[in-house]
Design a protein around this nucleic acid. Structure first.
Length: 161
DNA sequence: GCCAACGTTGGC
DNA sequence: GCCAACGTTGGC
């Protein structure tokens, strides 16, 4: 009699925003892997705390021309304290964050693929499969947000042309 | 660079 | 715990 001792692995899907002028999909391709620091929004943080190794995420370029989905990455390490919150010289320093009881967390992500062309936000807006997505239904969705598998698959399909 | 929307802060 | 002021986000 086998017992289900481990939950079946379920891949979750996410969308994570970065300004390409600060850090782009090309930077991640070069680095291979990086830590996703500087998240200072509770909703985004809560999403990061739900991430599991192996989850897939869309790398979204914000404040760029055009804004949109730039590629795919994979979660490589679960949430751990964001050390930049404790660093007074960091632009992400948060004097209210306590190292013994951290407020802010980050995950590690690794490069999977970059899309040949960014899938523009305007294209996503017109896409029937994306109408319910957090990205479009909220005026300004948090910089880390969940996607459903169909939404993720649709973005990937558009990205691969 | 503008500005709308919204999250966060802090006085009360 | 209300809510006004403030700061930030991010598309345009």
């Amino acid at each position: 009699m086998t017992e289900a001792r481990f939950a079946a692995p379920v891949t979750q899907y996410w969308l994570m925003k970065s300004e390409p002028g600060a850090y782009s999909i090309e930077d991640l391709k070069r680095d291979g892997k990086t830590f996703w620091d500087g998240i200072r929004n509770y909703e985004a943080r809560n999403s990061m705390q739900q991430m599991q190794v192996g989850d897939q995420a869309i790398f979204y370029h914000s404040s760029s021309n055009p804004p949109g989905a730039a590629g795919i990455m994979r979660i490589a390490r679960r949430a751990y304290p964001d050390h930049t919150a404790f660093d007074p010289s960091s632009k992400y320093h948060d004097p209210k964050s306590d190292a013994d009881k951290p407020t802010w967390f980050m995950v590690d992500v690794e490069f999977v693929e970059s899309f040949t062309d960014v899938v523009p936000l305007s294209t996503l807006r017109e896409d029937k499969a994306m109408q319910e997505s957090v990205l479009l239904t909220r005026f300004r969705a948090p910089s880390v947000q969940p996607l459903t598998q169909p939404e993720f698959d649709r973005i990937v399909k558009l990205g691969r042309g």
